[in-house]
Design a protein around this nucleic acid. Structure first.
Lengths: 163, 163
DNA sequence: AATTTATGTCAGCCTTGTTGACATAAATGG
DNA sequence: CCATTTATGTCAACAAGGCTGACATAAATT
C-alpha cells in the first residue's frame, strides 16, 4: 500500500518563497527567547515574568490596561505573574494621581536590575547579529519588523519604542 | 514616602539601542504567530500542532529525532501532539527502510492541506511587509534573522531551509 | 550476546494561557 | 445626588503545552 505523498507536493520554497522568512522567524525567535532562561531559572521565574518586568521597566508609571494591550493576554493571566512580582518586590503599584482607580506600575531598583540581567544576553545576541551588517542592515531589519506588526498597532508600537 | 524610581534610570534606548530590535521582535512575533489561530481553532488544534504539521510537511520522511532537534522540546511534549495528529490522519508514520527503528514522518494530503491553510495568512503578512521594501530589503531581513540564530545551529538551519 | 539507539509511553507536575462570575472603588454623566 | 461606567482585582475551574523521571520495545551495533 502506497502513501499518498505524491498527490500534492509538499510546500516548497520555489512555490512559496515566503517560507524562508516564516521559518527564519521561527528559528531566530526560538533562540532569541531562550537566552534569558538561565537567568530566569535562578530567580524561579518564567518567560511571562520577563515580559512583565521588562515592559514595566521600559514604561514607568504605565497602567495595567496598557500592559494588557501590549501583551495581548487576559487580566487574569497577567494578574497571576504581576502579583508574584509585586509580592517579591520587583514591581510596585502607585495609585494614579489624577485617576485614583488606576494602579500605576513601576519597577523597583530590584526589578530594574533583574530586567537588565535578562535583557543583557538578548542585547548581546543583537549586537553580534548586527556587527557584520553595517548601519543599513540595522535600518532594514527594523523596517521589516515594523511592517510585520499589525497595521492597527504600528503607530502605537512606534511611539512606545521611540520613548 | 518616595519611590526609588530615580535611583537607577529605567532602560532607555539611548543607553541600549538594541532595545529597539528586542522589542520589535516581540511585537512582530506576537502578531505573526497569532495569524493561524483562527484556522487552528476550527480544527481544535493549537500552535504546537501547527509547528509539527508544518515541519513534517516541509521535510517529508524526517525522523522524530530531527523534529525534536528543530522544535527544541522533549519527546514527551512532542509525543502528545504528534499522537493527536497521527490519530486524526494529518500525519503518518512509516518504518525507516534502512533503519527499521525509525518512524519516518509524512504529512498526509489532509495534513498538507492544513499546513497550507495555516501558512497562508503568515505568507500574506510577509508579502505585505516585503512589498514596500524591494529585493534588498528582503535580503537584509533574511541576513539579519540568520545571524540571530545560534551560531552552532546556523548551517543546519540554512540547509533545512534551502531544501 | 551485550550494549546502544530510536522511539514510545505512563504518571505527575508546572507555567501560563483561557472563560465566567463577581467585588470594589472611583470617575463620570445626567 | 444617583446611576452608570471604568479600572482593577479576585475566585474558581479548566486547557495547552512545556517539564522530569522511569520504564518498555525493537532493532542496530559492537
Amino acid at each position: 500500500m502506497q502513501r499518498d505523498e505524491t498527490v500534492t507536493p509538499p510546500l516548497s520554497i520555489q512555490q512559496q518563497p515566503e517560507l524562508v522568512l516564516i521559518e527564519l522567524l521561527f528559528y531566530a525567535y526560538r533562540d532569541f527567547v531562550s537566552d534569558p532562561d538561565v537567568v530566569l531559572a535562578k530567580f524561579q521565574f518564567g518567560r511571562a515574568h520577563h515580559r512583565v518586568v521588562h515592559f514595566v521597566n521600559r514604561h514607568p508609571g504605565m497602567r495595567v490596561a496598557d500592559l494588557l494591550d501590549i501583551l495581548k493576554i487576559t487580566k487574569q493571566s497577567l494578574g497571576r505573574v504581576l502579583k508574584q512580582l509585586i509580592d517579591t518586590g520587583y514591581i510596585e503599584q502607585v495609585p494614579g494621581p489624577v485617576d485614583r482607580r488606576q494602579r500605576l506600575l513601576y519597577a523597583t531598583a530590584k526589578g530594574r536590575a533583574l530586567d537588565q540581567r535578562l535583557t543583557e544576553p538578548q542585547a548581546e545576541r543583537i549586537r553580534a547579529a548586527l556587527a557584520p551588517l553595517g548601519p543599513e542592515g540595522r535600518i532594514a531589519a527594523e523596517r521589516f519588523l515594523r511592517l510585520m506588526i499589525d497595521p492597527a498597532e504600528r503607530d502605537k508600537v512606534a511611539q512606545m519604542i521611540e520613548h
